[in-house]
């Protein structure tokens, strides 16, 4: 296929990264072992970061590696460590779902048709100077999107609190309540007379 203004190097880089991305994505959802799946997900994200860089989105490429391959993957690994369970039957394929997949494939061919018609074959011309750099994105982010940016920070805070509250263990709380109850009983016993002692020698002591 003639790819318009793209150089040979561009094409090779794109095809290698695209094939690797697709391969690792498919590998991710077909693995039985969750750790293998996470590792191939990391590989997918690294290849995607390369594709972002080829779209001259350098800042987003760096963020992709930092947030996805760094933070989110660590989270996944930790959760796998907590709940490492063997699966009996990893795939749940039912007749209705097969029908859904067929419908999805049909829709995909239609979408590829539409996209193939609607966009020019040639690569877009030169991007503006400094396109995709931190400075350029920062200017748009803090000038036109300041409110959504602040809203995202609130969202992250809520997600942190929600994550802690939802995943918290309630066993410790129950244990703490029981311990307090027990302590209370002991204190009450200490205020009363020793059970073995007769009432007479300590009259009026209450």
């Amino acid at each position: 296929m003639n790819a318009g203004g793209a150089t040979a190097v561009d094409q090779v880089v794109f095809w290698v990264l695209a094939v690797l991305t697709t391969f690792f994505a498919g590998f991710t959802i077909t693995r039985r072992n969750p750790v293998t799946a996470v590792m191939s997900l990391v590989a997918t994200f690294f290849c995607l970061a390369g594709i972002y860089a080829s779209l001259s989105a350098h800042f987003l490429a760096v963020i992709q590696v930092l947030v996805y391959a760094g933070a989110i993957m660590v989270l996944f690994i930790f959760v796998i460590m907590i709940l490492n369970r063997e699966e009996v039957a990893p795939f749940s394929i039912r007749p209705l779902r097969v029908l859904g997949v067929l419908g999805g494939v049909y829709l995909l061919t239609k979408l590829v048709d539409v996209v193939g018609v609607g966009l020019p074959e040639a690569a877009p011309g030169v991007t503006p100077d400094g396109f995709g750099t931190v400075a350029a994105i920062g200017e748009v982010l803090f000038r036109d999107f300041l409110f959504p940016f602040e809203a995202i920070s609130v969202l992250l805070l809520v997600a942190i609190v929600g994550g802690v509250v939802v995943s918290r263990s309630h066993q410790k709380e129950v244990a703490a309540v029981e311990a307090a109850d027990y302590r209370h009983q002991i204190e009450e016993l200490a205020h009363h007379d020793y059970p073995g002692e007769p009432e007479a020698p300590t009259p009026g002591h209450h």
């Binding site: 992709q64 947030v67 996805y68 989270l75 959504p148 995202i152 969202l155 992250l156």
Partner: peptide, 18 residues
């Protein structure tokens, strides 16, 4: 924004899993 959203989604989703 979508990357930030994905981070929040992963945190809450994994908490629900636990």
């Amino acid at each position: 924004f979508i990357i930030a959203l994905a981070a929040a989604e992963a945190a809450v989703g994994l908490a629900i899993l636990v």
